[in-house]
Amino acid sequence: MENRWIAYLIPPFIITLLLVAGSQFVFIQNSFYQDLGLGRTGTDLTLTNYLKFFSDSFYLKTFWITIKVSAIAALLTLFLGFPIAYVVARMKSKLAMFLLAGIVVSTFVTIVIKVFGLIIIFSADGLINKTLLNLGLIERAYSIIGTQEGVVIGLMHFTIGFSVLLLYSVVVTVPPSLEYAAQIHGASRFRVYQRVIIPLCAPGFVVGGLMIFNMCMGAFTSAALLGGGRILTLPVLVQRTVMMEVKYSTAASIAFVLLVSVILINLFSLIAIRRLRSARLVVA
C-alpha cells in the first residue's frame, strides 16, 4: 500500500524539483560571473557583483527603500484589512458572502488594472486633486506616480485582498462564545478587544504581517508602474537591469539578494509561528 502512494509522488516531484532547482541554479550561478555588459559575462567565478551591491550606495538605498515601503504597506494593509475580516467573519448573512465576493474578485483582477484606476483617481483633474485644491489644502495637483506614497498605495492594493482572506481565517478561529463569556463576566467591549480578541488574533497578525511584508518585498508590477522610474525597489531594479542595461549577471545578483532576504523572512515567520503556537497552548 505504502509504495503505491510513493509511486504517485515521484514523477511530479522530479518535474517540480527540476523546474525549481534548474531555474534557480542557473541564475544563481550566473550571478557569480563578472558582468561585462550587453549580456556578456566573464569566465571566472567571483564575488564582484555582490561586492558592488553591498558597497554601492545606490543599491543599498534601493534595498532600504524596498524594506521601508514594504513595511509601511504591510502595516497599513493589516489596518485596513482587519475590520473587513472581522465584520465578515462575525456576520451570518447573505451580506457577508456578498462582501467576501467583492474581496475575492479584487484578488482576481490583475494589479495593472487597479493601478490604472489609481492613476485616474489621482490624476490632475481627478476627484481627489479637485477636492483638495478646492478646499485649499494643496497648492498644486498631487501626482501619485514617482512618489513613495504612490508605491505604498500600489503595494497595498497588491496585498489587501489576500490579507483580508488571511485575517478572515484568523478571526474565524476565535469563537464568538469567548467574547460573550467575557461580557457576561462584566467586561466592556473595549476590554473584550483588549483581553480577548486582540491577544487571540495576535499570532495570526504577526505571521500574516510577515507574509504580507514578504509579498510587498517581491512585488514588481505596482512598484514599477507607480514608482515611475524615480522610486526603485529591488524587483523593479532587477527588471530594469535586464531590460534596459542588458546586464544579466548584475540582475541575477540583485535577484539573489532579494531571494535570500525573502527566504530569511519566511524562516523567521516559521519560527515565529512555532513559538507563538507553543506560547498559545500555555495560555489556553
Binding site: L9, P12, F13, T16, L17, L19, V20, G22, S23, Q24, V26, F27, N30, N214, M217, G218, A219, F220, P235, V238, Q239, V242, Y248, A251, A252, A255, F256, L258, L259, V262, I263, N266
Partner: peptide, 27 residues
Amino acid sequence: AVSSVFRAPLQIPAIVSGIAFLQLYYL
C-alpha cells in the same frame, strides 16, 4: 522537505522566477 519543494514557487518572488527562467532558456 518534499512538501516545501512543491510550495517553493510561492516563496520565490515572481520577478526572481522570471529572470531565472529567462536565463535557463538562454542556457
